[in-house]
Amino acid sequence: MTEFVFYTLAAAAVLSALLCIVQKNPVPSALWLVSTMFALAGIYVLLNAQFIAAMQVLVYAGAVMVLFLFVIMLLNLGHASETDRKRGPVVLVAVLLAAGIAAALFAVRDTSVASLAARVGAPEVASSPLAALPGAGRVQSAEAFTNPIASIARPMFETYLVPFELTSVLLLAAAVGAVVLAKRKL
C-alpha cells in the first residue's frame, strides 16, 4: 500500500515537473510546480519526515510560490512570449545533458544504496538511525520514533545551533537586500 501511494505521488511529481518546464505561460508553469511540491510533501510523509512535509507545504508551496505568482502578476507576465522557448540543436543538447546527469546520479545512487544497505544491515544501526549523529548518545531512540519534532529539534538546537542562528542573519540580509533592489528610489 505504501509503495503504491509512493509510486502514484512520484508519477504525479515527475509529470507536474515536466508540464512545468514545457508550459508556454508562466502562471500555469508556477501552478504545476506547486503540484510537484505537494506531491513531494506526500512523499516526505511516507519517508517519515512529517515536519519537513509541513514545512514544504508552508514555505515552498505557500510562501515561495506565492512570491513567484505575485511577481508574475505584478509585472503582467501572464502571456507567452515567442523568444521564451529555445529551438534547434540546443533542445537535443539539453535533453542529452539531462539524461547524462540522471545517469551519473543513478550510478552514484547504486553505490550509495549498496553501502547504505551494508550499514543498515548492521544490527545497532538498524535499531537506531540516530547512532550516526554526533552526540547521539544523549538522544534516546524511543523518543525519536514517538516524537519526530523532538528528534529534529535536538540536532538543530544542539549540534547545528550556530548555523541555525546564522540563517536569521541571512534572512535579514535577504529581506533588506530585496527591499533595496526593488525600491525605485531610496
Partner: peptide
C-alpha cells in the same frame, strides 16, 4: 534532470 533541462530550454 528535469530542472536542468528546464534551465537549458527556457
Amino acid at each position: 534532470s528535469i530542472g536542468v533541462a528546464g534551465v537549458m530550454l527556457r
